[in-house]
Amino acid sequence: MSEKALRPPRPVASEGPLARAALIAVALVFLSLFLFLPLVVVFWEALRNGLGPYVAALAEPDALASVRLTLLVAVISVPLNLVFGVAAAWAVAKFEFKGKSLLVTLIDLPFSVSPVVSGLIYVLLFGAHGVFGPWLKSHGVEIIFAVPGIVLATVFVTFPFVARELIPLMQDQGSLDEEAALSLGANGWQTFWRITLPNIRWALLYGVLLCNARAMGEFGAVSVVSGHIRGLTNTMPLHVEILYNEYNSVAAFAVASLLALLALATLIIKTLLEIFYGDGLANSSRRH
C-alpha cells in the first residue's frame, strides 16, 4: 500500500496549507498596517516626552472643557437616537404603510450625505443669515456656534446607527412573538417591554455603542457648526485638530489617545458582551 493512499484527504472546501498561510498573512499585514500601526503611533506620539507632558496636556482647562463638551453631546444625542432608532426600526419592520421605502432611504441619508454638508444645512437654517436665524436671534436663542448646534449636528449624523442595527433583526424576527403576547392579553406597552425589547436587546446595545463612538468622534458636521471657540464649543476631535495645527503634537496626540481609548473600550465591551451573552438567548444552558 502506498503512503499516498494512507494520508487522510483534507475536506473538499478547505485550501492547501500554502494557500491558507498566504491568506492569513495578507489579512495580518493589512490589519497591522491600517489598524494596529496607527493605534500604536497615537500612543507613541502622545507619550514621546514621557508621562508628565501627557498628563499636563490632558489636565489643561481647554482640554478638560472639550472632554466635558464631548460627554455632554454624547449624553444628549445617544438617548435621543436610541428612542428615534427603536421607533423607526419598529415602524419599518413591523408595519406596512405607504412611503415606507422613503422612510428607509431617509434613515440612511446621514450615511450618504457628507458630514460637512449636513453641518452646513444647520448653518443655513439657524445661522445669523439663515432661514430662522434672525428670528432666533431676536428671541435670544443661539444654535449655531453654540452647544445646541453641535448636538443637532451630532444627532443627525449618528441617527442611522441604532435603526440600521435593529431593522434587519426585527424584520427577521417578524411579529409572531408580539402576536402571541397580544393573544395572551398583553397590551401594546407590555408587549414592547416584555417581548420586543428583550428580543432586540443585544442588537440595541451594539447599536448604542456604535452610535456613542461616532457621537464622540464626529468631526465634519460638528466642525462646521461649532465655531471653534476654545473652552466653549470645541469637542475633543476639534480640539485635537487645533492642537495639531499649532504644532503641539504631544498634546494633540494625548487628547487623541483618549478618543482611541474610547474606541478600544467600545470594542472590549462589545467582545465581553458577546462572550458572556452572545448566544445566551438562543441557548441559555450555560447560565445554569
Binding site: A181, L184, P198
Partner: peptide, 25 residues
C-alpha cells in the same frame, strides 16, 4: 387561546414564565 405554527414561545423566558405570561400581564 392561540397556538402558533412555530409555537412563538418567548425564548428569553423559562417554560414556567412562558406559561405564566398570560396571567402576569
Amino acid at each position: 387561546g392561540f397556538v402558533f405554527q412555530n409555537y412563538a414561545l418567548f425564548k428569553h423566558m423559562t417554560i414556567a414564565e412562558n406559561i405564566a405570561f398570560g396571567l402576569e400581564v
